Computed example of a mutant assay.
Amino acid sequence: MQNSETVATGRAAIEMHGCGSCHRIPGIGQADGNVGPPLTHLPKQSYVAGKLPNTFPNLVTWIVNPRAINPDTAMPVLGVSPDEAAAIAAYLYAEGEGG
């Protein structure tokens, strides 16, 4: 789930989808947005988006379609595929463990 190739794919997907324009993300240059919550220390958080228990599958679900979980969220549906979302989640969990 968090091998180095998957984590690298997640980093690339984060950059491609522009996640850093809204979030602070460890290890991503210029990912210093303040619209959404910082994604530092993600493994230590109890919930994803304040709604779902913080599990890998829940984070993937949120990334793919946040409005299915919370229709009022400011987070847009960005067209992230389930595979990309899994790689993004792997990156966030891996980087957050060190932060």
Rank of each mutant, 00 (worst) to 15 (best):
Y93K: 05
D83H: 10
A31H: 02
P66S: 13
G29N: 09
R11Y: 08
H23I: 03
E95Y: 04
G98N: 12
A68M: 13
A12N: 10
I25S: 00
A8C: 08
A49M: 10
D32E: 09
L39D: 09
T9N: 14
A12V: 11
V64H: 08
G10M: 07
I88R: 00
A86H: 03
L92Q: 02
T6Y: 03
Y91N: 01
T40N: 14
A49K: 08
P71W: 05
L42Y: 09
G99S: 11
E5W: 04
P82M: 09
R67W: 07
P53N: 11
M1G: 15
E15K: 12
H41I: 10
G96H: 07
A87F: 01
N58M: 10
E97W: 06
E95Q: 13
V60R: 11
G99Y: 11
M1R: 09
G98L: 14
H41M: 13
I63Y: 04
G10E: 06
M75K: 10
V48F: 14
N70F: 07
T6W: 00
D72W: 06
D83S: 13
S46T: 11
A94E: 06
A68Y: 05
Q2W: 04
C19Y: 02
R67H: 15
E84D: 12
T55P: 05
V60H: 09
V60I: 15
A8F: 13
V35C: 00
S4M: 10
P82A: 06
E15V: 15
L59Y: 07
G36T: 05
L59E: 05
L78S: 04
N65S: 14
M75L: 13
A12L: 13
I25R: 00
Y47F: 15
Q2C: 12
E97I: 06
A8L: 14
N70Y: 07
K44A: 14
C19P: 02
G10P: 05
H23W: 02
C22W: 01
D72Y: 10
A12M: 13
P53S: 11
T73V: 13
C19L: 05
V80R: 04
N54W: 07
